[in-house]
């Protein structure tokens, strides 16, 4: 098992945190993981991305040219990564913020209005978690329950934030399951 995932968007959308959640989950499930951020001279509102690798084998390069999956949360990231996802890979697009489509028939593109779904839950900032739920449902890279466990310990002191995040994760996953069904 080898997944090489890029998560990209604006600074402040939680792309680095989303990647850390995924890496934590992979590690918790006993796999090798790496998480590496873009760390240019960046700022809130600028672009940010991270690469997460989850593998049964020892991980060589922590960077990849062509990821097996990507979550894109803003138009510049869509422009960059839509073409780079490997054939047969998965592209999760927040269609509430991105009007373009990849136009590729050789990848699984999942367009879901993550920001709108999160806003309906009363936590607009959880769009990243909605998108993560979709990615996990589409790829099975980790178990949703593992993410829930990590969120539970992370937000132990803030039950309302935890509840919203758990719902966001489930809504994202259910959106994908509905498409497939």
């Amino acid at each position: 098992m080898l997944e090489e995932i890029v998560i990209a968007g604006f600074g402040g959308q939680g792309v680095l945190f989303t990647g850390q959640l995924l890496a934590y989950a992979g590690m918790t499930e006993g796999r090798n993981v790496t998480w590496i951020p873009s760390y240019g001279p960046e700022m809130r509102g600028g672009t940010a991305h991270c690469t997460v690798i989850i593998s049964d084998e020892e991980i060589g390069s922590p960077l990849v040219k062509r990821p097996s999956a990507a979550i894109v949360l803003n138009p510049p990231s869509m422009a960059k990564y839509a073409a780079l996802v490997r054939p047969g890979g998965t592209l999760v697009v927040d269609s509430a913020l991105i009007t373009e489509r990849s136009g590729r028939s050789d990848i699984h593109e999942i367009d879901l209005p993550a920001k709108d779904i999160a806003a309906d839950l009363g936590l607009a900032r959880a769009a990243n978690v909605v998108a993560l739920g979709a990615l996990i449902a589409a790829t099975g890279v980790v178990q949703l329950e593992t993410i829930v466990k990590i969120l539970t310990s992370r937000f132990a002191a803030r039950p309302e934030v935890l509840l919203a995040n758990k719902r966001a994760l489930r809504m994202g996953a259910e959106y994908v399951i509905k498409i497939v069904a």
């Binding site: 850390q20 890496a23 590690m27 993981v33 790496t34 998480w35 590496i36 951020p37 760390y39 922590p62």
Partner: peptide, 10 residues
């Protein structure tokens, strides 16, 4: 190098 400094691993 910067990779090792910035990367997260178990």
């Amino acid at each position: 190098d910067g990779n090792i400094g910035q990367m997260m691993e178990p």
